[in-house]
Design a binder for these strands. Sequence first.
RNA 1: GGCCCUAUCGUCUAAUGGUUAGGACAACGGGUUUUCAAUCCGUUAACCGGGGUUCGACUCCCCGUAGGGCUACCA
Length: 461
Amino acid sequence: MENDIVSGKKVVTRFAPSPTGYLHSGSYRTGLFSCIFALQNAGKFILRIEDTDKERSKKEYEENILESLEWLGLKYDAFYRQSERTEVYKKYIHRLIETGHAYISKETPVTDEGSHSKKNTDATLRAEVIRFRNPKKKVVFNDLIRGNVEFDTTELGDFVIAKSVDEAIFHLVVIVDDIEMGITHIIRGEDHISNTPRQILIYEALGITPPIYAHIPLLLGKDRSKLSKRKGAVPVTEYRRRGFLPQAVVNYLALLGWHPTDDREIFSFDELVKNFDLARVQKGGAIFDEEKLCWYNRQYILKLTDKEFLELASPFMPEWLSSSSDISKRLPHVLKEKITCFADISNLLGVSGELGFIKSLPDFKSEMLLWKKDPNAKESKIHLEKSLEIIETIDEKTFTADVTKVALWSYAETAGKGNVLWPLRVALTGQERSPDPFVSAFLIGREESIKRLKNAITKLS
RNA sequence: GGCCCUAUCGUCUAAUGGUUAGGACAACGGGUUUUCAAUCCGUUAACCGGGGUUCGACUCCCCGUAGGGCUACCA
């Protein structure tokens, strides 16, 4: 790679997904590495939609790819769609036929060992195709991540490169595009490693030096098999829907398979561009671990200011914004520590959620008001009455969690924190799990707090 | 089956011939706390096996084993 940079040849990388399914993390990460590499070398990054398979390609999937890249901040310098480039491929098909490197074949390919007997009988029934005349030799290429990889292409036989003189397939179109687009570094998934020798063969037939290859290890599912669209890998956009932060997803994925020289784990996109090193990319596949993704997301959520948080969270709590904007301003602080992703908010604020008490007080039994199931209901009642008395002295305008805490604290300390604060919590929230009573009171407001306290006192009478 | 790739805690990984094999997630325990969470501190946990090479191997070589990928007129 250094030679190219030294010789002044501009680095050009590409991401070439096929729109045959939603974009998943594994594909995205390959694109991410590709893009970062281009950025590091002041090069160009190209997005190429490989939609030559008309049967399986769908517009919906292409749109999903575009949405994913935009959400996760991958910017490309050029965009191509293979379905719009058939004329270019035709030129190459003809060129290969004219130079004797490819031929029109109606028959089964000539293989040294007639190993594919079943397929052969099928093939004879099919229409004519274009086959590459395989020189059957050893091919060696130097992979940036794996070093020298050697293949014997003999057993590949005369493989198909086009369905007809008009319709090229994968092995050819990839090469044609990579040549035409001036790709210098092909950074792609390891699943393509065994496609590489036959592609190199075509480069040689064309008299063109192949680009530099870097085969990224695969992202694996829990069962250790490759993440694939067919097996229902989670689309990247699903994480958007669930309210993950793009920077968390990017950060996590970049560190799956790559690691800096030190123990640092948090990287922004720009910092990745500064620190990433293709040569340090892992050789083995990595299991996608959603728990660690969640941890990353929490790290980034905790960094958000209340304002930023509210902005990002608002799509997940629309009804709270329209009704009382006051409450929505009080919520961020509480929500931030409780959620992993924004989608958790609706559960938290829902009727049976931890913050469900804000909208309406759940029905609860009077025994719940007693701290540590203390049978002495009288005391709890006295504490509640005293708490009510104190809260009533606080002015509406200064009714915040801090002020309430200060007002109640000394009493709580002398009477026993549990004795005072537990009944207060339950009275205000009707729940055993909730934010602390001061925050809870703040969330529902002075008036409602007083109302609920009175209600609880009646319950104990 | 054939070809190719890979191999350190459960997971992601550090280590490039000499370390008490380090970090993070998870798990577990504890501090803090009125509950839960958050946070802080700590604990458990790994070099796939066998041969070499070497004064010395997680590190280099070979052989196994295991996992994965490819094996289409898909990409």
